[in-house]
Amino acid sequence: MRRDSEFLSYVNDINRQFSGWDFSFISGTGRKRSGLLSWSYGSMARQLIQRADSMLDMGTGGGEFLSMLRPLPRTVYATEAYKPNVKLAKENLEPLGIKVELIEEDSDLPFKENQFDLILNQHESYSPEEVRRIIRQDGIFLTQQVGGLDCKEINKALGVSLNTEFENWDLKEALKEIKKNHFQVLYSKEEFPIQRFYDVGALVYYLKAIPWQIPDFSIQKYEEKLYEIHQHIQSRGFFDVKQHRFIIEAKAF
């Protein structure tokens, strides 16, 4: 089927470079908007940082978020599992005195027992056992997670099943694991805000950045379904999906 030139122009956004954890190409231009949560991970993290002497930022990406939380404690480490981001994170963070570590296994972090009094984790996998090993008694673990039902409407529109490995990842499951590993939960909440795409190119760019949503994603394979989404946007003005987010603040004991 012949596609219109506007559609072809949009899907070409898959060739745009993506680095760190920076969605400004589509969010900064208003092509993608996300609904508001009733909490702010950044505000909570900033307050905790001011009371910490040593901290770890898990899954720092390119270090963009962490660098904006200054002033930071005397001792700060950051981890990142995606190798292309490690170089960027080191460039951004090491001039600030932050040590960046490449990790391969959540259950084997290169830190001593009881090393940190604050551990931050935004949208990164973790082993609750390992987090408890490296955090001090009375230390705080703050994590905001992407739940297993995140953006399921994208999968439905493209005819792809949700990843069964993560489908049941939600606040209830995370709290069970946290409590089992000697943490007292201080705060927790779960919400499903709307994420809106105003053109199919923004969706394509987004899917390239988060390959776990549609692991075999390519324009060629999903062109027909993408064109249907494009037509939906042309008709309605946008394509809405539901995000799945939850947050936990817990104290080690």
Rank of each mutant, 00 (worst) to 15 (best):
L8E: 13
S9L: 13
F18Y: 10
G20R: 00
D22W: 01
I26T: 11
G30Y: 12
R31Y: 11
R31K: 15
R31H: 14
K32F: 07
Y41G: 02
M44T: 12
A45W: 01
L48E: 08
A52I: 03
S54M: 12
T60V: 13
G61T: 05
G63P: 02
E64T: 09
F65C: 03
L69Q: 12
L69F: 01
R70T: 10
P73S: 05
V76M: 03
Y77K: 09
Y77W: 10
T79S: 08
E80G: 02
A81R: 09
Y82Q: 02
A89S: 08
E105Q: 13
D108I: 12
N114R: 14
N121L: 09
H123P: 02
S127Y: 14
P128F: 13
R132A: 10
I134T: 08
D138W: 09
L142P: 03
Q145K: 06
C151F: 07
F166S: 12
F166N: 12
W169N: 06
D170I: 04
K172D: 14
K172H: 15
A174G: 07
K176P: 00
I178L: 07
L186N: 14
E191S: 15
P193D: 10
I194T: 15
D199K: 05
V204A: 14
V204N: 04
V204D: 01
Y206I: 06
K208L: 04
I210L: 11
Q213S: 08
P215W: 01
P215H: 02
F217S: 05
F217C: 04
Y222P: 02
Y222L: 06
E224T: 07
I229G: 02
H232P: 03
S235D: 10
S235P: 00
I247W: 00
I248A: 03
E249T: 10
E249F: 00
K251N: 06
